[in-house]
C-alpha cells in the first residue's frame, strides 16, 4: 500500500469509528431509556443491595433479573440486556477501527513512525486510551453506568480533532526524531486517558454526593443506577492513583531527559512544561486532599476536576494561546533569534 492509501485508510477508519461509537451511544441510550422506567431493584439483581456500601465495587449490572413477577418487565429486561450488550459490542468494534486508524496513520508516514507526531494524532491516541481504559475496566469496576458518557465523549473529541486539528501526514521534525517520542508521549497519552476516565467518575461523584445531600432518593432514573459516592470515589481514586505516577514519569522524568537532548535545557519553564507541572501539582493536591479531613470527598473531587481542566489546557490550550511554546509543533524548522552582539 502506498503512503497515500494508508493515510486515506486512516481517515476513513477515524470516520468509521466515530460512526460506530455513535451507534454504540444510541444503543446505550435505548438501554438506559428502558432502565429509566424501572425501579433500581429490577434489572440489577446480580448487584447486591450493599453495592453502594464502602466495600464493594459494583453498582449496576444490567444482566437479567432472576426473579421478576410480571411479563412486562421481563420484556424490558431483555431489551435492556440486548441493547447493553450491543452497545458494548459496538464500542469494541469502534475501538478496533480506532486502533486501525492509528496504525494506518503511522504507516502513512515516510519513514513509518508512531502516530502521535502532532495534536490531531495525539487526540486520536488519547481518545483511544480512554476507550481502552473503559473497556478494560468495564467488568472490574462494573462501569456500565459510564457507557453513555464514554460513547458520547470519545466520538465528540474525535469529531473535534477531525474538524479543528486535522493535518495531513508529514515527516517528523528533527526534534521529534528520538526514541523518547515513543516513551514520553505514550506515557503522557496513557495518563491523559486514565485521568479523563477518572475525571468522569469524579464528576458523577459530585452529582451523586449532591443528590444524596439533598435527600433525593428516587429509585428510578439514571442516577439511581450510578454507584454511590463511596464507590465512585474509590474508582476515581484508583484511576488517578494509576495515572499520577505515569504522569510523573512522562512529565518529570522522560520530559526533562528529552528536553535536555533536544533543547539543551532539561527544564526551561516552557508554557507546556509549566502547565504539565501545574497539572502535576494539582493532582498531587488531589491525592493529599483525599486523605485530609475537611478536604476529602467533595473538595477532593473538585480538585480532581481542576486537575483535569489543567491537563486538557496543557494539552490543547497551550498550543493555541501561547506562541512561544517549543511544544507547538505547528511550526517546523528552527527559528533563530540570537541576541544582539
Amino acid at each position: 500500500m502506498s503512503d497515500q492509501a494508508w493515510e486515506t485508510l486512516s481517515n476513513q477508519a477515524v470516520a468509521a469509528s466515530g460512526v460506530v461509537y455513535f451507534l454504540a451511544l444510541l444503543a446505550h441510550l435505548v438501554q438506559w431509556s428502558v432502565l429509566r422506567k424501572l425501579p433500581v431493584s429490577v434489572g440489577a439483581q446480580s448487584a447486591p443491595a450493599a453495592a453502594a456500601d464502602a466495600s464493594g465495587g459494583v453498582a449496576v449490572v444490567t444482566g437479567p433479573a432472576t426473579h421478576t413477577h410480571t411479563a412486562e418487565p421481563r420484556d424490558d429486561e431483555q431489551r435492556i440486556e440486548l441493547f447493553g450488550r450491543l452497545g458494548l459490542l459496538l464500542t469494541g468494534i469502534a475501538g478496533l477501527a480506532h486502533a486501525l486508524a492509528l496504525v494506518a496513520r503511522g504507516m502513512a508516514a515516510d519513514p513509518n513512525r508512531v502516530p502521535w507526531g502532532n495534536m490531531y494524532e495525539f487526540t486520536v491516541s488519547g481518545t483511544f486510551v480512554v476507550t481502552v481504559t473503559y473497556l478494560v475496566l468495564y467488568r472490574r469496576f462494573a462501569l456500565a453506568w459510564m457507557a453513555p458518557i464514554v460513547t458520547f465523549l470519545v466520538p465528540s473529541l474525535l469529531m473535534a480533532a477531525v474538524i479543528w486539528l486535522h493535518k495531513p501526514v508529514t515527516p517528523l521534525m528533527d526534534a521529534l526524531e528520538s526514541p523518547w517520542l515513543v516513551i514520553h508521549v505514550v506515557s503522557a497519552v496513557i495518563a491523559t486517558g486514565a485521568f479523563t476516565v477518572g475525571g468522569i467518575a469524579s464528576v458523577l461523584y459530585l452529582v451523586q454526593d449532591r443528590r444524596l445531600r439533598k435527600g433525593e432518593v428516587s429509585d428510578r432514573g439514571y442516577l439511581a443506577r450510578v454507584p454511590g459516592p463511596a464507590v465512585l470515589d474509590r474508582i476515581a481514586y484508583r484511576l488517578h492513583a494509576f495515572a499520577f505516577p505515569v504522569w510523573t514519569f512522562a512529565v518529570l522524568i522522560t520530559g526533562p531527559i528529552w528536553a535536555h537532548q533536544a533543547w539543551s535545557t532539561y527544564w526551561n519553564w516552557d508554557p507546556k512544561e509549566v502547565w504539565a507541572f501545574i497539572t502535576w501539582v494539582v493532582y498531587a493536591a488531589y491525592l493529599h486532599a483525599r486523605s485530609t479531613a475537611g478536604w476529602k470527598g467533595r473538595n477532593a473531587a473538585i480538585l480532581a476536576l481542576v486537575g483535569l481542566a489543567t491537563l486538557w489546557y496543557s494539552f490543547i490550550g497551550v498550543n493555541f494561546f501561547s506562541t512561544t511554546s517549543q511544544h507547538s509543533y505547528a511550526a517546523p524548522a528552527v527559528v533563530v533569534t540570537p541576541e544582539a552582539r
Binding site: 447486591p48 464493594g56 465495587g57 459494583v58 472490574r140 462494573a142
Partner: peptide
Amino acid sequence: AQATPEATGT
C-alpha cells in the same frame, strides 16, 4: 471477590 462483597460487611 471484590465484585461480590458478600463475605464482608455481613
